[in-house]
Simulated assay, not measured.
Amino acid sequence: MRAINAEVIRNLEAKARVLRGHILRMLTQAGSGHTGGSLSAADIVACLYFWEMNIDPQNPRDPNRDRFVLSKGHAAPVLYAALAEKGFFPQEMLSTLRKLGSPLQGHPDMKKLPGVEASTGSLGQGISWAVGMALGGKLDNRDYRVYALLGDGELQEGMVWEAFMAAAHYKLDNLVAIIDHNGLQIDGRISEVMSPEPVGDKLNAFGWEVISIDGHNIEEILKALEEARKVKGKPTAIVAETVKGKGVSFMENRVEWHGVAPKEEELKRALSELGLA
């Protein structure tokens, strides 16, 4: 097991800032897309792609690779940013987000872009993909791991809980579901639209190991992922408390930034706050 130290944490914090910069630039160029939930997941995705997962951009279909499923598919910009930074495709392609003919559409398409494991967008379906992948790994006696990132508003979907139940039934200890628990969805606060709370207690009741963390604390994220590797006989859920629009003061905890792209002046201000101007 690799050591988690101050240098590792600094490097991943820097990588998360770079991802946020990519997200903001590509959304501004596209003129549309989902800003808030992409920014809230950047620290988690940075830890997965640049520390945790066994993946090789030179061999994206390696049968022994770890799998990542972006169940909250509308947050595609954070996935595209990570894939480009990792070397799955040239970073110049990021400027084509949501353009006609681009493989970088508003939701991930596994048939068009290397490194995308599942075509997601209709909320609730991604975690079922992940359960199937994890079960397939068990049946094939492979030791890869599967990571699924869900939104907390997504937990309002009934099929999510069917997938959670199946994962526990099949003792999928190679599966980690990470809940981006930022408290907001397109129509407002999740507590007011249709509350899924208490998320951790419910997952625990469904037979999952539950770890609660600050989803912007790199050390906590890494330690939770390390702890999840030690869990045997059941899947692990990491409930990550996050801030929608994290990293940009005028976007943080603002529901209106769920599905709005920054304009040029807002981009300049945001990049300056991130130290990327």
Rank of each mutant, 00 (worst) to 15 (best):
M1L: 11
E7M: 13
K15C: 13
R20Q: 03
I23L: 12
A30Q: 04
G36L: 13
C47N: 11
I55K: 08
P57E: 07
N59H: 11
D66N: 06
R67H: 11
L79R: 05
L79I: 03
Y80S: 12
A81M: 12
A81D: 11
L83G: 14
K86W: 04
L97G: 08
P103T: 13
H107F: 14
K112L: 15
A118G: 07
S119F: 13
T120Y: 08
S122V: 14
Q125N: 14
G132V: 06
G136S: 15
D140Y: 04
D140H: 08
V146A: 00
Y147I: 02
G151V: 13
V160I: 15
A168S: 09
D173H: 01
N174Q: 06
L175N: 05
L175A: 03
N182S: 09
R189C: 04
P196L: 12
D201N: 01
L203F: 15
N204C: 04
E209S: 07
I211Y: 00
I218C: 03
A224Y: 02
V231Y: 12
K246C: 03
G247C: 08
G247A: 08
M251Y: 06
N253V: 07
R254A: 02
K263G: 09
E265D: 09
E265V: 03
E273G: 06
G275S: 13
